[in-house]
Design a protein around this nucleic acid. Sequence first.
DNA 1: CGATCGTTTGACGGTGCTCAATCACCGTGG
DNA 2: CCACGGTGATTGAGCACCGTCAAACGATCG
Lengths: 290, 290
Amino acid sequence: MSHEISVSAGATFGVNGWSNERCSLMPMTATSPLSDLLMLMGCEPDAAVHDAGLSVPLWQVRSGAALLLEGACSSHVYVVRTGTFKCIKIAEDGYEQVLAFAGQGEVLAFEALCGEPQRMGAVALEDSSVYALPVRELDSWRRQSRRFDHVLHVALSRQLTRAGQMTELMAAVSSDVRLARFIMWWSNRMAERGQSPRRLLLRMSRRDIASLLGVAHETVSRSFSTFVDQGLLRVDNREIEILDPVGLKACTRNTRGFSDDTLQRGSPAGRSGTLRQRAGADQTPTALAH
Amino acid sequence: MSHEISVSAGATFGVNGWSNERCSLMPMTATSPLSDLLMLMGCEPDAAVHDAGLSVPLWQVRSGAALLLEGACSSHVYVVRTGTFKCIKIAEDGYEQVLAFAGQGEVLAFEALCGEPQRMGAVALEDSSVYALPVRELDSWRRQSRRFDHVLHVALSRQLTRAGQMTELMAAVSSDVRLARFIMWWSNRMAERGQSPRRLLLRMSRRDIASLLGVAHETVSRSFSTFVDQGLLRVDNREIEILDPVGLKACTRNTRGFSDDTLQRGSPAGRSGTLRQRAGADQTPTALAH
DNA sequence: CGATCGTTTGACGGTGCTCAATCACCGTGG
DNA sequence: CCACGGTGATTGAGCACCGTCAAACGATCG
């Protein structure tokens, strides 16, 4: 059992300078019935889930510990049960690029499915726990449980959806819009798991957010303040409350340059400055005088 | 047979204003042996691929035609055989957000796996063809061909990897860096499929690139010009040639942040902060010949 | 309580968004 | 054949946004 600690866990220590202090990876040898995992992924509990007696290793990861090491090969695919992770990539110059934040139900180390090395590292942002699915036994498990097989597909499909959401976040031109989208995204995630979509506890630093959104961390801080000034948000360090969900959602739109304070949100604001429209209709015939 | 046109295809016409002209979706009833698909996804040809007599519907999509309609439910999962698609999402205000460009071997409409509506539309950027995998028969096929089952997992895993690459593209703070990464990304894709990684033919407009990268399309154009001035690129409309791969790769690094210290590409204008500065007329690269 | 890190705010300068104008390219129709 | 729109690409001018540097404050933990 203890050999389960495997490469990714063992390599965690002493490689990135995390080693000391209480950043410890605790691969609790506890296991959980497969049905627990299935329920986490959305299966109905009533559905007589015959888990074929299979039990899934359950790992605990303390805040700050690395679950995955960039470049290493993982022998497991993980599904987050509780907690939050940040997925990162370290550039040659040492810059830590955040690529995603992963929460309950998300798949980590999917690269292990086709035996490729991990494309990103993963660090716990709070005390967390993950289901550890040994790749070597995945096929066997899938054959023993049709439901598990299906759940795995659903999990991958959803993970792709989430990756697309990340793209949407970052494609906004204005930094305010990016942050607004990020907050709404996090809010929706909270709602998905039955928590309040208005009172949020961000588990990551401003710098992490900034890295993900591709802006300076001071800009993130300033955008927060802007929203507070507009009465959309209440911010206390990493604890934020959405005061005006409609107004915040309006900030989600890809507009640029409505910084002239005037909070005319609420209804109209039909003014969508200069948005690139589809071909047709709206184009004013440019007088092609020459 | 013709019922294969299904929701996504049928709904294509007359919904978005594309209807008229030669934007036609041609669901050629042609089929291809399963082994062709497996080989596309990386299976060795020798491996006695017993395709169990299964044959995969092959669809042809003309340039400009929509393969997927945002919000519709697709009855198929698609794998791109030839050509290029852009994946888009239309905002309420009509802004067309490009979320990805998909080429050979990429999976489209994965949402169909769990019966959810398409989160994005997909439009062919050139005459293309796709394998159309009917979701209803997927399980059956997977049971009939272990290899196909595995390939499907690999395909999804790779698709997740590509989605992560998109995130990396867009996470850069400087627009020059974003474009440089985009070019390198496209170059690598060409190399993967055995085409020249230096002479590239972009299938998408500047506006599409800008939308994906989250910048103004004029900025994309300007960044192209900057690279040309630096002698890194030769640009002729959508046909570009990488003259200095090493230099371009250097532009790929996220030079902003708390950098100074290390490296800094030795070539142009020793300025260590921004690379837009090009004090001296450096190399006048030859090769205007075509 | 002192050290370290995260957060916030100010000032300044540069990047890049907006608004334009111009040119090239096309398919259409006179 | 060349005018006539229409679209895409490039470039310029102006200025707002935001990245950088800096300083102050708060939080956390030993």
